[in-house]
Design a protein around this nucleic acid. Structure first.
Length: 656
RNA sequence: GCUUCUGUGGCUCAGUUGGUAGAGCGAUUGAUUCGUAAUCAAUAGAUCACGGGUUCGAGUCCCGUCAGAAGCUCCA
């Protein structure tokens, strides 16, 4: 029997032996560090008996798979600890996840004190260092075994396994759990762990099923790694837009105004206006868009026509009472039908297409109260919304154009490397959720796939994420805690024109149904701002800063000169302020830094005579003296969006 | 919507077993007019989220409402 190792070398053995024994044969150190193995690319347990030729690689805590095995074992240790301290708790499931692991229990809520007690109990279990043993049972015996132990959730899991599946269990001391593995050889390998939080979770993720208590934790092979992880979480907390954005006075919320309704303060508003002026100019002057302004509300009739009244009424703010009032209105949750009527205002010829409409559009969605979060999930938001009405033969080119525009926006914001592209497809298993024929779906999905491949954009495909009228490209970004949000979406719609009776007249005088692209270029202003705050930790590119230059006279004597400098800066559309307080200059510099102002101009006697200013920048510190005019030109270049591709920011500003 | 946790001056937080509030930063005023990470002093500012309850007495205990956080579910 020949076993090929990761480095290409080959080991030969007479008879079958376990993966662990192979690791031991390679080196004792490796055997000690080993967490699991991959046999011909398949993840497997160290206990797996190898009896044939194969490729074997041993995974340690440095590999994704190895770390997962540690965490998975940690979740079993947690389950054992829970069973020890709370014997009445019922076990559900306990996998490893990106950031650690969790385990769900049917039990009353766990407090922080409970978690601390459980952590202590886990330490005891790890110290005992029981060996984990794997064994399998035939289906009926497995069910009987878990019934006897009074674990109804486990019984349900076994019943749902395929008839021919091997049903495996792991035993550590007294504790036994249904589990496919892989696991460490002993609980001793769970060296550094922490229970981070607990919360409710639904059995099988279904809000109609039982409510369980989930305990989250994280585990590493070394204390230092755990420490580093906890520090990363601390850093994330400092970048969190919901905290930093308030601290920097970009936005606030008020109890009596309501949930999910942020107020933008002058600095935040300035940033939003910079984004808005930039994107509107860009779309209109360089990408051929026309601008619309449509009502924020409409009669219920419109939503009945679009289908929203039946499918989305819960998500809308309805004004009036259907029972009593003759007419009921609702705030709009999207712009689509409004812009369709702009299109329909005049008859269009094939020559008029593509007809690209864009609107800085405020939308309202009545999200459930638990869904709101900072600026990323709100009840009122503004989006660079647009609909392109195109001839079928223009569809591919226009769709490409929308992706190119989105990419350009991301590049200008300096975040193009932080996104992932998704092709969101329909779910053929669930056809009643969508309209249109399967062939059309498969065709359009293939078109989009071809476009992404042609543009050399890496992407993943998600089943069941499409809109009901068509597939889409979603561009997602992660927040500081690793949670993903959609920033930009571009949707292919070959169906809705029919429902709204939209058409154009072709060469032969026939009325033809156009296709529609629903798209955003820069996304939703609130969400984009949140993302920028976290990306740059508040140290925005100069062009986006609400305050770009702060003028600091070293004493009152130079206030006149400072005023002159300020006037010249503002005359060139630079956002500048002067700090004329009678504080020490060092103090004023420190404050400007804390406010994350990118440039400080320290002005005093010498400068006034020679027309110079002393420049300090947020990134580079003291840049020395230069003529005022030269400095102004430099800043103007830096804040011109036409010249921006990417601001060079020091390492500390980049997201991990 | 569900589960848990949280809610004290503008901000960050302290407040021990129930005895009617404290710090730092910030703000204001005065002095200082100063060259690169904190000049000195004084002053103001809190019905302890809101509404009930227990108690001789509640920031502290209980219930409800509102708001925030984490997670679940949802995001057409």
């Amino acid at each position: 029997m020949k076993i090929t190792l990761k480095d290409g070398s080959v080991k030969e053995y007479e008879k079958a032996l376990s993966a662990y024994e192979v690791a031991l044969d390679i080196s004792e150190g490796l055997a000690r560090a080993a967490c699991c193995v991959k046999i011909d690319g398949e993840e497997a347990d160290l206990r797996t008996i190898i009896g044939r030729d194969c490729e074997l690689s041993v995974c340690t805590a440095n590999d994704e798979e190895g770390l997962a095995a540690i965490r998975h074992t940690a979740s079993h240790v947690l389950a054992e600890a829970v069973k020890n301290l709370f014997p009445e708790a019922k076990l559900a499931i306990g996998p490893s996840i990106d950031t650690g692991f969790y385990y769900d229990f049917d039990h009353e809520a766990f407090s922080r004190d409970d978690l601390d007690a459980l952590e202590a109990e886990m330490k005891k279990i790890v110290k005992k260092g029981e060996k984990l043993e794997k064994f399998t049972l035939p289906r009926e015996e497995a069910i009987a075994f878990m019934e006897e132990r009074q674990e109804p959730y486990k019984v349900e899991l076994i019943r749902d396994l395929p008839e021919d599946a091997e049903i495996s269990f792991y035993r550590q001391g007294e504790f036994v759990d249904l589990c496919a593995g892989p696991h460490l050889m002993s609980t001793k390998g769970v060296k550094a762990f922490k229970l981070t939080s607990s919360s409710m979770a639904y059995w099988r993720g279904d809000s109609d099923k039982a409510r369980l208590q989930r305990i989250y934790g994280t585990a590493y092979s070394k204390k230092e790694d755990l420490q580093a992880h906890l520090e990363r979480m601390e850093d994330a907390k400092r970048r969190d837009h919901n905290r930093l954005g308030r601290e920097m006075e970009l936005f606030t919320t008020v109890d009596v105004i309501g949930q999910g309704l942020p107020l933008f303060t002058p600095k935040g508003t300035k940033m939003l206006m910079k984004l808005q002026r930039w994107i509107e100019d860009l779309e209109d002057k360089e990408w051929g868009y026309v601008r619309t302004r449509t009502p924020l509300m409409a009669k219920s009739d419109l939503y009945k026509m679009s289908g929203h009244w039946d499918h989305y009424k819960e998500g809308m703010f309805v004004l009036g009472d259907e029972e009593k009032d003759k007419e009921v209105y609702a705030l709009r949750p999207m712009t689509c039908p409004f812009q369709y009527y702009v299109y329909k205002n005049t008859q269009k010829s094939y020559r008029d297409l593509p007809y690209r409409m864009s609107e800085t559009s405020t939308l309202f969605r009545n999200e459930d109260s638990g869904e709101m979060h900072g600026l990323t999930r709100v009840r009122q938001f503004t989006i660079t919304e647009g609909h392109l009405v195109v001839r079928p033969d223009q569809m591919v080119e226009e769709f490409k154009g929308c992706i190119a525009l989105a990419k350009y926006c991301l590049t200008t914001l300096g975040v193009e490397e932080d996104v992932t592209y998704h092709l969101s497809k329909w779910d053929p298993e669930n056809q009643e959720k969508y309209i249109g024929e399967p062939e059309v779906w498969n065709q359009t999905e293939q078109h989009i796939r071809d476009i992404l491949i042609e543009l050399e954009i890496p992407f993943v495909e998600d089943v069941g994420e499409a809109a009901f009228y068509g597939p889409k490209v979603d561009i997602n970004a992660k927040n500081v805690y690793g949670k993903e949000d959609t920033m930009i979406t571009i949707q292919w719609d070959a169906l809705l024109a029919e429902q709204f009776d939209m058409y154009y007249v072709d060469q032969n005088g026939d009325k033809i149904r156009p296709y529609i692209i629903h798209r955003t270029s820069m996304g939703c202003y609130e969400r984009t701002l949140a993302w920028l705050i976290e990306k740059y930790a508040g140290k925005f590119p100069t062009w986006l800063c609400p305050e770009q230059v702060r003028v600091l006279p070293i004493s009152e004597k130079y206030e006149a000169y400072a005023a002159k400098v300020l006037k010249e800066l503002r005359g060139r559309d630079i956002d500048a302020e002067a700090d004329n307080r009678s504080e020490k200059i060092g103090f004023k510099i420190r404050e400007a830094r804390l406010a994350r102002v990118p440039y400080m101009l320290v002005v005093g006697q010498q400068e006034e005579e020679e027309g110079l200013v002393s420049v300090r920048s947020r990134f580079a510190g003291d840049e020395g003296q230069k003529p005022l005019a030269e400095f102004i030109d430099q800043i103007c270049r830096e804040i011109s969006t036409k010249e921006i591709r990417r601001e060079e920011a020091p390492e500390e500003n980049r997201q991990a």
